[in-house]
Design a protein around this nucleic acid. Structure first.
Lengths: 339, 339
DNA sequence: CCTCCGCGTGCTAACGTTAGCACTGCCTGG
DNA sequence: CCAGGCAGTGCTAACGTTAGCACGCGGAGG
């Protein structure tokens, strides 16, 4: 690799002069700058950021720590983030935790060793105490899920309100046996969504046994399929389904298609997230649309400001809109179409 | 940030000893090692990889340079790659080019400055000459698209064969007006897929005007919609459609659903890629399935070997299977279902 | 004529880590 | 009893870049 020293030797000048010329320092004559730049270009010089970092400069890398990039919500976030950061000269590091706190910890160690400038993280249910320590030392922002030990810098969705609205939509249509399939209560989002589901039932004046919650790994398509299979076998199968994660929704839709369940006649369904494909599934999936782009640009802007301004910026958190209910054809009063 | 020096001062020993203790050097007494490790853990020491890199060590970061992470093919690749690399202690850097050679160049400059250990890239149609220079200096592997100036390390799909099979399937059913909607010929993949399309027509003994190619940005869902709209307005609209990219397929499916086009009665469709949702679209989408996981693990393994072994490893390239045609309900002889 | 100033450049140290070499005791074999 | 070796540790230089300080030179003002 070419260094400033190589350039200096070739031009018969000092390393300092080369460095200053490349930094466009006002003290260097235009002629020298020109010669240095020319030589640098010819020799294919690329500054070594590791060396620069050792002089106290911070890195230009920001990490995104998420469960799984294949989840289209996260890939959308990654995309927006990447776009925003690139414009500011930052690079994006991608770390997948697979919702495993040990993997999360390993990643955080590496990110820390690499001295990333900032971290945007969707934390696992109960981050390892070392993970907490590591995060504390770096500007970070929690996304979606919020774990109290990680501070109050959080950017999320009003999960409670989102599921409340989704469920209320079914209650309003007269359903009295509604199942919720979502993530575990250990996850903050899981807990909130379940609470929203329960709130809607209660507000609708339904008895306690009207609702039924099936909780499990939220990132597993297979789990969605199995759960819906189990539910349908039940003699007192629900007449409506509310879903609490994108992956679960994908799994459930596949299974319902495959089993030829008539929606909404036999079963009403409200999904979570809005993927390409949800609009053309069966009669069109009624679903909770999420403000992905707003969230991603919000995150990017927050982090950029946090990294460029000196004082330990600390707006406590920003909750984004609860998501909008997109009503399509997959919901109807129990027993058939028509209200 | 805590450094080895801090630990050394606290324990009243030298920096070298601390360094060696942490590296588990055999010359250091067990007792000293223990004290150093304890102190390091207590103080939250994390080695600075930038400093280590300056001593000649290479970085543990590998970059993935792709057009758009939201494309599920790329997110699947990113996932597999990330999983494989994490196991080896590597981190993944994500760079999106948006198929813009200038953005690509900017990213490559940054990656180069950060001294990434390796790069896996889906190059733009005509990479900037500086991009070529930069890539030459780093172990890299082309994915899917292959640009001659970037060397022969390539991991891809047999695009010609994939599209040939897809088209042949339609020809076999008797279609004589077939349209291909795909990426531009400037992209190696675009050229190959178009060639495959043409080959199948020729092999089927169809006249030159049987086929019609509509080329445009492959990553644009909107372009897929517009193209199909335009095709349907044509008095001599095709009776079958072959698609040449995942995003275009998504767009086309949405438009066909929205317009209520009867598939396969009015139009047969063969898609590209196999997304969740393709199976439940209309009568089920006949499509070209891609060996995503095999490719991703293949890439990861190649790169790992390339990075860990000394000699400039140079298997010229590896072409993966042509993709398997997944036959569902969206294809039938012209004019209706049934053969 | 001398001093002072500013322009352009060079020297040197520093960042955190690592590796080569040197040093100090102590123990063993001749 | 002495030489040599080894275990355990310290000193120092080096990686590439940058910033503070110093230096030389020429011109302007006293």
């Amino acid at each position: 690799m070419i260094t400033t020293r190589d350039i200096a030797e070739r031009l018969g000048i000092s390393v300092s002069t080369v460095g200053r010329a490349l930094a466009d320092d006002s003290r260097i004559s235009e002629e020298t700058k020109f010669r240095v730049r020319q030589a640098a270009a010819e020799m294919g010089y690329v500054a070594n950021r590791a060396a620069r970092m050792m002089r106290g400069a911070s890195s230009n890398v920001v990490a995104l720590v998420i469960p799984d990039i294949r989840n289209s919500f996260y890939s959308a976030i990654a995309h927006e983030l990447s776009k925003n950061m690139e414009a500011q000269g930052y690079q994006l590091m991608l770390s997948e935790t697979d919702d495993d706190r040990m993997v999360e910890l390993r990643h955080l160690r590496e990110l820390s060793a690499n001295r990333v400038a900032g971290i945007i993280i969707v934390p696992t249910a109960r981050p390892h105490s070392d993970s907490v320590k590591l995060l504390r030392a770096v500007p970070h922002l929690q996304l979606l899920r919020r774990h109290p030990s990680l501070g109050s810098q959080w950017f999320g969705v009003d999960d409670h309100e989102a599921l409340r609205r989704a469920t209320a939509h079914l209650v309003a249509q007269g359903h009295t046996r509604i199942a919720y399939v979502g993530g575990p209560v250990e996850l903050p989002t899981g807990a909130e969504r379940l609470r929203g589901f329960r709130s809607a039932l209660q507000e609708g004046g339904l008895p306690d046994d009207a609702g039924r919650a099936e909780l499990g790994p939220p990132a597993s398509l297979a789990h969605g399929r199995e759960t819906v299979r189990r539910l349908l076998e039940d003699p007192r199968a629900p007449t409506a389904l509310v879903l609490g994660s994108i992956q679960l929704t994908l799994g459930v839709l596949e299974e319902l298609s495959q089993q030829g369940v008539k929606v909404p006649e036999e079963l009403s369904v409200v999904g979570f997230g809005d993927e390409p494909g949800f609009s053309w599934w069966g009669p069109g999936l009624t679903t909770v649309g999420l403000p992905i782009e707003e969230m991603a640009t919000g995150c990017a802007l927050w982090l950029m400001r946090r990294l460029t301004t000196k004082p330990s910026n600390d707006g406590p958190y920003t909750s984004v809109s609860p998501g909008s209910l997109v009503v399509r054809g997959s919901t109807a009063p129990p027993g058939g179409r028509q209200a």
